[in-house]
Amino acid sequence: MEEKLVFSRPEALTDMPTHYCPGCHHGIIHRLVAEVIDELGVRENTVGVASVGCSILAYDYFNVDMVGALHGRAPAVATGVKRGRPDSVVFTYQGDGDLAAIGTAEIIHAAARGENFTVVFVNNAIYGMTGGQMAPTTLDGQRTQTSPAGRDPHLAGHPLRMSELIATLSGPSFVTRTAVNTPARINQTRKAIKKAFELQLAGRGLGFVEVLSTCPTNWGLGAVESGQWVDSHMIPYYPLGVFKED
C-alpha cells in the first residue's frame, strides 16, 4: 500500500519552533503565507519585511531572505526593498499596533502610491508583545492593561477599521479582511494571500490582507474560546469581506 504525504511543513517556513503563545493565530497565518510562497514557486526570490510586535521574530520563521523593520516602518522599508529589487517578491508582516498606530503614515502612503508588494496585516485588537495594552484596534469596552475599565471612546476614540480606510485609496489593487478561526476561513485566508501575491507578480500594486487573529494570553481566554470571541466580538465590528478589488 503506497501512501503519500498530503500535508507537512512548507519549505518557506524554517523548522524553528515559534515563540507564539499556545493557540495564537500568528502561527497559522505564517504557515499560510509560506504555503502561498511555495505554491507560487517564489521562495528563492522573496524578501519578507518583519515588523515590531509579537511578529518581530518572523525573520527567524520564514525561510526566505528577511529584513527586520523598526516599529511601524515596514511599508517604507518594503518600498525601499521593492524599489531596490523590482523583480523580488516582497511582503510585509505586521500587527495592528505596528500598522495602525505608529505606522499609520507609512501604510497609508505606501498604499496610496500603489507600491507593488503584499501586506499581511494581523489584527488581534491588542498589543501582544508588550503585555496586552490598548491598540488602535482595541474594541470599545475591551479591557486591556491601559484601558482597565474597558476602552472608552470618549477618551480613546473608536477603533480604526484599516481595511475600509485603505480601500478608499486608488493605489491598492486588493483589500480584504479574513479570519482564521474556522477551517473554512483558514482556506479563504490562504486564497486571499495567494491572490495578493499573484497581483504583485502581475505588477498590479499593493495587496492588503487583514487577518483577524487571537491573543488568548492577553485576552485572558483559552485557545478555543478566543476563536469564538473573534466571532462574537471582532467580526461584528470588523466585518469579513473584500473591500477593494481592481
Binding site: V67, T79, G80, G84, R85
Partner: peptide, 11 residues
C-alpha cells in the same frame, strides 16, 4: 526607512 530597505538589497 526606504534607504534602509534599498540598502538591505545591496543598492
Amino acid at each position: 526607512s526606504m534607504v534602509y530597505g534599498a540598502a538591505a538589497t545591496g543598492r
